[in-house]
Nucleic acid binder design. Sequence first.
DNA 1: GCATTAACACGTA
DNA 2: TACGTGTTAATGC
Length: 236
Amino acid sequence: MTGHPRRRRSATPEDLAQIHWLQRLAPEDRAWAAARVQVHDLAPHDVLCVFGDQPTHWYGTLHGLLKLSNDSRDGLPITYAGLPTSGWFGEGTLIKLEPYRYNVSALRASTVGSLPVADFHHLLDVSLEFNRFLMAQINERLGQFMAARVTDRMRNPEIRVARSLLALFNPVLYPTVDAFFQITQQELAYLIGIPRQRINEALQQLAVKGVVELGYGGVRVLDTGLLSAVAAAPLR
DNA sequence: GCATTAACACGTA
DNA sequence: TACGTGTTAATGC
């Protein structure tokens, strides 16, 4: 429960193939970075980062689903973002060298990659490609958070669910997300901030429209085009 | 009135 | 058996 994940191992070739920013680097930088990446296996509810901790690594979801939130210290628990497969996070904290302002925990069994903070800064110093990648990522994330502010003010659960699903399928931030998204309706409820019953209702509305297909413990997005259409227009 | 919360039965892994 | 889903009932604003 506390501090850092228990099971740490070195990265397998399959793990490294999941790390999309590695492919962007020049070959020598790629080899250098790949040798320094470590991998952690998390059980559901395992905590990766805690509010107030000094950051030691840059993290990414290789498999599974993480939640970035500020648990109920005082006031309402707020989930800032879900981090699906291929999502990397914490660069803002690392660049500022400030303590974490949020908690990160696993919503389900997950595999996490990590790069030590010193190595992260080394790549910043030597690799133009790495800087380009980070700039695109930060830019995309900024857009997502601005959109999320709008979404949070909306009443219609169907649109909120559609937009949240769309955010999790962002191809820039999360290039290798599966079409079948393994997330329970309860987890979506925590993520979006509305009760499970209304998540269920909204998902069924989306299913009727052929946007998604509901499965046990997950959602299959059938048509991302339709999904963005629903997210954009409050059609009943 | 409504939206949220609690409680239930059922199906699935 | 434990968990996730879908529905209904109760509660709070």
